[in-house]
Design a protein around this nucleic acid. Structure first.
Length: 886
RNA sequence: GCCCGGAUGGUGGAAUCGGUAGACACGCAGGACUUAAAAUCCUGUGACCUGUAAAGGUUGUGCGGGUUCAAGUCCCGCUCCGGGUACCA
């Protein structure tokens, strides 16, 4: 029989759809559950690319395997459908984003269904559906009404916030201000990145190192706008600690740790000469206070105007003006060359009472620590550079641990910077009574902090790099905030019964020049009046795309629930997500934001687990071959001619080099999954994507290799669909052994997501089957079952040909019989001094001495033993024999 | 700069706890079938050397050292490539 994949795949996709084969079980009494989740896609107009089926196939194999092992499986799919492209398209063509989105979702759904993935389509969700974003708004309200209790390290309802007496007595406005300062979501003026091209605010994360917008590549600028912010740093410690217990790739865990950026040190207060206020700095090296010879504050520091002395106003203002003009690009470019300006003012070093100058420089950032530093040029490279440039004093306070005499002298004299540990010198003062001379770094830090705290001059402090999360965009196509700004300045939040607040119908989507969202033109929607005639405006910002994806895994549990965000019995049953697969590009942001929301929901007792995703796996990007000439210029793939394994530019015949690059339209090397399914079928596409290499690494697509797995499927079909190959009677011993080895290997590899080696093992078995020519019905049954998660259409078809009436999706996974795997005879490779020379078969039950005797007695051993004496014979059971000679 | 990965035949890749390097697949070569080609099936295939052959030897996992009976795997020092991050005090 011919392998007619088109007919077979269509038939079974229809069967699964009609019979709702993959409907999630309603019965929650089965203690074995498995929630297998893909990162849901943004349905772009371009349709599916080959990267999508990679992760989807992996989770599908896993989900199908778990069903066969008797688990209740939740395996859903949906659409992260808010986002810029649909809105951009609306601006250009007037097509409503909802229309574009619906069309794109339909395409994606159709394409995904063509891959034979075992999703429960009854659980499909779409972030742009008001029935979905109602609950995104609902969560926002909860964030707004939550404060973080730092003592309990826990989010609590705002009604449980204790207002200090002095604030209570200062009136309603003070209480409101205090309360707002504690909410996890707050509205504030924020200096934000603005992309003039997209006319959109970007989060710090969306701005690349060179100062360009990651989406469009244009240079962004700073702009002051009213924005919603989320206080994610309050959860920094919880988010950091939680990482340790997750079954995630170490690299991703490390990236999250770095992003959170915890550092320990101290805050130290410096008196400012002639002023009441003190200048507080954060430092990780309070032990180097004796080396602090000047201070630097950021250009945006609040004390700049007060600190600047009259004669210095002009130069300071000029410096600040220039610093503000600098885009991030300039700041990075000029990173090597430090700039700064003296304020004319001095501070007092608390450890020795010395006057030290206060400077302003943009190498000190407003957003980190207190926006001010004490500069220790002898032991900090940045301060060293700055001090050198502006001729500030450099005092070495640590004896460097270096052999090189000349280098040591340079360091001691302040001509070179020393950032390693060492024992302190010049670090005592009689007037203040502090002395750390002779100590090392650890002890020095402890003693200084103790001294600072006892004198009330400072305290130990932990700082985090992670900043407040900018949570609004000046866009139409996003979730509206359930917020009204009243004319008297009050902000009110919609009542839950009024949710969802739907987006108004509009015809023009052009954003304003000034940073106002298109929503500001929806007058009827925008303007509201309360019972007392007070007028207000709805929030015109919308939520960023992260919002919908932050919690979608929770809605999958109970997507049609109109009463609640989800049924909590169901939530308790299905959570946490057991396996979550997606691209590494979401390593930090999506996963961190999502964990943050989840922890808040956990604190509010809305979800039952502290972490959402138990096990995470990132698939590697699929690359493609590309071609470049001598000069490194890229040549489109469709112009390339191949001859004898070399590549030539078809236009002019010059030889070009084959390289591996990202798929791109300009290189003409984009692979469309539908082309592959047309030519070889969905099962081949699935199998190839899994066979290419390990799931987590980048790997290049090579069309030729698809033939390899296609061939395997053809051979499988041809053999098992032919009744003449299926025999009765007892099974061949080698086949039995091979089969059980294969079952075991495939099972192990599915568990560790090493699908490439699982497939290779099945290929080995099929080769054996071809060699033998016949298998029993029972063997055919087992092999078809273990192959079916990988090639489900083929699996179902063969299963039916074997005489079964219904789907194999819930058949139990074949067991491994260890009996068949035992060997009577073991083949040992025999090496002499580590070099393998020959192989010897010995009965499995021999002990080491007997094996050694047998090896030495073998005639082939003689050649290697001539005029040498045997020093030792190492026998590693079931592994190897090594004869050591002299 | 710092942090994290990686480097194995012509190609994608395999190798559990240190134990036969190159499984499986592609490609290539030879053969069978065919008028021929495609498809299919069979055989061979890291490099180098000896040999008509059978067979045997040397060498070999980015580079240089080391530990070990034994190193792709462990340790030390590099090179190159990829990802993240970037004046974070």
């Amino acid at each position: 029989m011919e392998y007619n994949f088109k007919q077979i795949e269509k038939k079974w996709q229809q069967y699964w759809e009609e019979n709702k084969t993959f409907k999630t079980p309603e019965d929650l009494s089965n203690p074995r559950k498995c929630y297998v989740l893909d990162m849901f896609p943004y349905p772009s107009g371009a349709g599916l690319h080959v990267g999508h089926p990679e992760g989807y196939t992996a989770t599908d194999i896993y989900a199908r395997y778990k069903r066969m092992k008797g688990f209740n499986v939740l395996h859903p799919m949906g659409w992260d459908a808010f986002g810029l492209p649909a809105e951009q398209y609306a601006i250009e063509t007037g097509t409503h984003p909802a229309v574009t989105t619906r069309k794109n979702c339909d395409t994606f759904r159709r394409q995904i269904k063509g891959l034979g993935l075992s999703y429960d389509w009854d659980k499909e969700i779409n972030t742009t559906d008001p029935k979905y974003y109602k609950w995104t708004q609902w969560i926002f309200i909860r964030l707004y009404n939550t404060w973080f209790d730092e003592v309990l390290q826990k989010g609590r309802h705002i009604s449980e916030l204790t207002i200090p007496e002095d604030i209570l007595s200062s009136g309603k406005e003070a209480v409101r201000k205090y309360t707002d300062s504690k909410r996890l979501a707050y509205y504030a003026d924020a200096l934000v990145w603005w992309c003039p091209d997209c006319r959109i605010v970007c989060s710090n994360e969306e701005v690349l190192n060179d100062g360009s917008h990651e989406k469009c590549g244009n240079i962004v600028e700073k702009k002051n706008l009213k924005q919603w912010m989320l206080r994610i740093p309050l959860y920094a410690e919880r988010l950091l600690k939680g990482i340790d217990n997750l079954d995630w790739p170490e690299g991703i865990k490390e990236m999250q740790r770095n992003w959170i950026g915890r550092s320990t040190g101290a805050e130290v207060d410096f008196k400012i000469e002639g002023m009441e206020e003190t200048l507080t700095v954060f430092t990780t090296r309070p032990d180097t206070l004796f080396g602090a010879t000047y201070m630097v504050i950021a250009p945006e520091h609040v004390l700049v105007p007060a600190i600047t002395m009259p004669g210095y106003k002009e130069s300071v203002n000029e410096y600040i003006r220039v610093a503000n003009l600098k885009s991030e690009l300039d700041r990075t470019d000029l990173a090597k060359e430090k700039t700064g300006v003296f304020t004319g003012r001095y501070a007092i070093n608390p450890v020795n009472g010395k006057r030290i100058p206060i400077w302003i420089a943009d190498y000190v950032l407003t957003g980190y620590g207190t926006g001010a530093i004490m500069a220790v040029p002898a032991h900090d490279t940045r301060d060293f550079e700055f001090a050198r440039k502006f001729g500030l004093p450099i005092v070495c306070i640590q004896e460097p641990d270096v052999e090189d005499r000349a280098r040591r002298d340079r360091i001691i004299n302040g001509d070179e910077c020393w950032t390693e540990d060492g024992s302190y010198i010049n670090s005592s003062d009689l007037s203040t009574g502090i002395d750390i001379n002779g100590l090392n770094k650890e002890a020095g830090i402890a003693r200084i902090i103790g001294w600072l705290e006892s004198k009330g001059l400072g305290k130990a402090k932990v700082n985090y790099k992670v900043r407040d999360w900018l949570f609004s965009r000046q866009r139409y196509w996003g979730e509206p905030f359930p917020v009204i700004h009243w004319e008297d300045g009050e902000i009110s939040i919609l009542d839950e019964k009024d949710l969802p607040l739907e987006l108004p119908e509009m015809e023009k989507f052009q954003p304003g020049e000034t940073g106002e969202s298109p929503l500001s033109n929806a007058v009827d929607w925008l303007e509201v009046t309360d019972q007392n005639g007070r007028r207000g405006r709805r929030e015109t910002n919308t939520m960023p795309q992260w919002a919908g994806s932050c919690w979608y895994y929770l809605r999958f549990i109970d997507p049609d629930n109109d009463e609640q965000i989800f049924d909590s019995e169901k939530e308790k049953y299905w959570m946490p997500v057991d396996l979550y697969i997606g691209g590494a590009e979401h390593a930090v942001l999506h996963l961190l934001y999502s964990r943050f929301w989840h922890k808040v929901l956990y604190d509010l007792e809305i979800v039952s687990t502290d972490e959402p995703y138990t096990r995470l796996f990132n698939q590697g990007m699929i690359l493609a071959f590309a071609y470049e000439n001598e000069a490194g210029a890229k040549i489109p793939a469709d112009q390339i001619e191949e001859r004898d394994g070399r590549f030539y530019n078809g236009e002019n015949g010059t030889e070009v080099r084959q390289i591996v690059a990202k798929m791109s339209k300009s290189l003409k090397n984009v692979v469309n999954p539908e082309d592959v399914t047309m030519r070889y079928g969905a099962d081949s596409l699935r199998l190839y994507e899994m066979f290419m290499g390990p799931l987590d690494v980048m790997k290049p697509w090579d069309d030729r290799n698809v033939k390899g797995v296609f061939n395997f499927l053809v051979r499988t079909f041809r053999f098992f669909s032919n009744d003449a190959n299926i025999s009765g009677g007892p099974e061949d011993v080698e086949i039995l052994k091979g089969l059980h080895k294969t079952i075991r290997k495939v099972e192990e590899d599915i568990g560790t997501l090493k699908f490439n080696t699982a497939i290779s093992e099945m290929m080995i078995f099929l080769n054996l089957v071809y060699k033998k020519g016949k298998v029993t019905r029972e063997t055919a049954r087992s092999f078809i079952l273990i192959l079916s998660p990988f090639a489900p259409h083929l699996g179902e078809e063969l299963w039916q040909l074997l005489g079964h009436e219904s789907t194999l999706a819930y058949e139990s996974w074949p067991g491994v019989n260890e009996e068949y795997l035992k060997a009577d005879i073991v083949e040992y490779p025999v090496s002499f001094n580590g070099k393998m020379r020959f192989k010897i078969e010995v009965p499995a039950n021999l002990d080491r001495d007997e094996i050694a005797r047998k090896v030495l007695a073998d005639e082939r051993a003689g050649k290697w033993l001539a005029d040498k004496s045997v020093k030792n014979v190492i026998v590693v059971p079931d592994k190897i024999v090594n004869v050591v000679t002299r």
